[in-house]
Design a protein around this nucleic acid. Structure first.
Lengths: 138, 138
DNA sequence: CAGGAACATACCTACGCACGTATATGCGTC
DNA sequence: GACGCATATACGTGCGTAGGTATGTTCCTG
């Protein structure tokens, strides 16, 4: 589960509403659909999206499928949010997530290496001067 | 500033990279562009997006525009993330944000009111029974 | 096992957005 | 003031995705 996907889940109003509802009590799809005022298909697809990313879990009970937040003692949305951003939780998460971006992995190196000199072909202009942020403050 | 917009900022890889870089030191646009390997336009538009939502601030210095995280003692990304999700910060934020969704404001009421009875026209079927999640666990 | 209810999935459409090209604006030097 | 550089903005394009319609799957009841 990539942190960026968590943010992607939470940046949609409908998914935020679903998480908010499930944080209070488990609900079956027809109840979620009723409360949200969405179609059955839209509700089901949002739930599938969240389920595939582990943000909600589903269990069948007869003809109904009950959705709830994944197990773990505090299952309120506040807990979800806190886990995301609490340094003790989010920092490793963020680090692991950033490591998956090969691009990001070298951002800092490039910043400290290449930018010690003036950026973008300093020889191209006689006016060229070093931008202020070249001096790395570390 | 709506919480959902913060999530929207953070769910994009490029914006997350920008935040990560600015958390270490202020940078001008040309340096960000250089490090990120993006075009000038793409970089500028991402910065405009973040700037309009208050996640970064810009100050002009000569021909350059220096971007940095908004003032406030701890300006690391970890702080940004912690502020978002720390209960003391995020809960009011979330509440204020949810209040802006008129839809959400009544979700809980509808859930506890309407769902005490069976959803979706119980008279339509002789098989109709009450779904399990009808009984509110509070 | 026939029929219906709850839920999921395949396919289509509309819209938001990330990025590119072209152009405008602000600042500094000569 | 002319020119160049740094940055911002207007407009067009392609892609991801949220929603809808149609249909499949699972479960229950009679």
């Amino acid at each position: 589960m990539r942190l960026i996907e968590i943010y992607h889940c939470l940046c949609d109003e409908t998914r935020l509403r679903i998480m908010h509802l499930l944080a209070q009590a488990p609900l079956c799809v027809c109840h979620l659909q009723e409360v949200l005022g969405l179609s059955q298909v839209a509700t089901s697809k949002h739930l599938a999206y969240l389920r595939k990313r582990g943000l909600v879990v589903a269990r069948r009970q007869g003809q109904w499928v009950i959705y709830s937040l994944p197990p773990g003692p505090p299952r309120e949305l506040e807990w979800q949010l806190r886990c995301l951003a609490d340094c003790r939780e989010a920092h490793p998460l963020l680090a692991a997530d950033l490591r998956t971006f090969q691009t990001i992995r070298f951002d800092c190196e490039r910043r400290s290496e290449g930018l010690a000199t003036a950026p973008r072909s300093p020889s191209s202009s006689r006016h060229r001067r070093v931008p202020p942020t070249t001096r790395t403050s570390r």
